[in-house]
Amino acid sequence: MFSQFLQLFLAGVAQGCVYALVALGFVLIYKATETVNFAQGDLMMLGAFFGLTASAILGWPYWAAILFAIVVMAVVGMLIERIVIRPVLGYPTFTVVMITIGVGYILRGVVTMVPGWGTETYSLKTPFGDAVLRFGGAVLAMEQLATIALTAALCLVLYLFFRFAKLGVAMQATSQNQLAAYYMGIPVQRVNMLIWGLAAAVAAFGGILLAPVAFVHSNMGFIGLKAFPAAVVGGFGSVPGAVVGGLIIGVVEALAGFYLPEGFKDIAAYVVVLVVLLFMPSGIFGETARKKV
């Protein structure tokens, strides 16, 4: 009984880590530009395809493929910011949200047109193999363990980056007050561009981690829609919130899939987000809003 619970819990944590990675992308962009990027899931999909190209088609080793996908996606993210987002800077939030939805449509369509990618389903091989780890009666696949470990490592790197790197501090400043940051000599537009690059790189990382579990497909970006509840539950605009929210959603989903009737697994995330929004309108770690006229 307990070992079964533990099993579900660990599987939920592994899945939650992927949600957390996508949610991290949302949060980074939201913090800096007050934009919610609905194309985050599609960026993840694109990242997974680049990883697939490098490892399966070009035959590169796994780590090189990850690096390749991250670098390419960082460039793609910066290009999206430069071409599409910057012209609408200062427009109402919802306008910018719609533009990212449009970007998502374009990315999804373009992927189906690229020869060698198309509408097929692919799987990505990992060096972790089929090894399993037994732990208190629960069985944990190495792939899941790797997902958890890599997510934790990435969070640590991001934390150190925001805490100590000059660029990270500049990004924090931009997210808190663009005008003040500008007066302090921070090139706000360039920082925004870099943040989009960073978010896209994180998305690529998430996509590659998800690939062994969910297969690489042009519609795999829809998993990003599950990451929304994660970001909202944690409170948009809070980096630790995104991780905690992702883990909550992942675990709740895994448990609901087993203990509740069929169908609850798919809506568990959304029920959780509605309940949280009802009682805490800005999430668990959200900043309290006070509107000034």
Binding site: V84, M98, I99, I101, G102, V103, G104, Y105, I106, L107, R108, G109, V110, T112, M113
Partner: peptide
């Protein structure tokens, strides 16, 4: 999908 997205943007 591409045309729809482009028009929206």
């Amino acid at each position: 999908s591409v045309v729809f997205g482009l028009i929206l943007v």
